[in-house]
Amino acid sequence: MDWVWSHLDLIWSSTLAHVALCVPAIVLGFVVSVPLGYWASRSTAARGVLLTLGNVLYTIPGIALVVLVPVVLGLPILNPLNVTIALLIYAVAIMVRSAADAFASVDADVRGSARAQGFSGPQLFWRVELPLAGPVLLAGIRVVSVSTISLATVAALVGIPSLGGFFTDGFQRSFATEVVTGLVAVLVLAAVFDVVIGLIGRALMPWNRGRRLTSRAAKTLATAVPGGVGANL
């Protein structure tokens, strides 16, 4: 424990670095996946192509992607952006499926009735379909958040600061305290993100409070979780 107290500064700065890698990937992953998922929910052909592509991308090992991204994009090897872009690719790979399911879960009667009231196409999307897809989108982004925070530890393998540094360093020095510290920090960070995302969802979807997860949302979670956390390390 002495080690922890004497390294609080390092723990804090690594946590911030970790957050800086993850947040853009999670947010952009969501923003990119929503239109793709919407498209996939409207067209079976698009759905087939996008979901297959997502699955393929998701099977690329994390370390390979982190090494490949700078080569493909011509970025300096130590640029944290490499890690964020790799994380973004994983986020989209997971999130597109959730988003497609989210839009498919919107009640056809409600959509039809809204159209009959005179919602135009864009109004229907922004005011009806997107909010009603919200609960399933929320479930998806929670999975993405946890998985991204876990995956971001791979940054340590290419010398970019993150909580993963405690794993590599502790492992090299056979120093369990450091490894455990890194592990706990990752878990706490993931939990904090999950709570924050949950609160945002609650604030944005007051009608949904107290409802249980829709069966589709539950299914999305169930299928996403097993391969989710740390599978690509």
Partner: peptide, 21 residues
């Protein structure tokens, strides 16, 4: 069509109300 629908009232089975409003 959008303008037409706005000036015609429409009521259906299971109400089709917007659950988030």
């Amino acid at each position: 069509p959008v303008a037409l629908r706005r000036r015609i009232g429409y009521v259906m089975q299971n109400s089709g109300l917007l659950p988030h409003r």
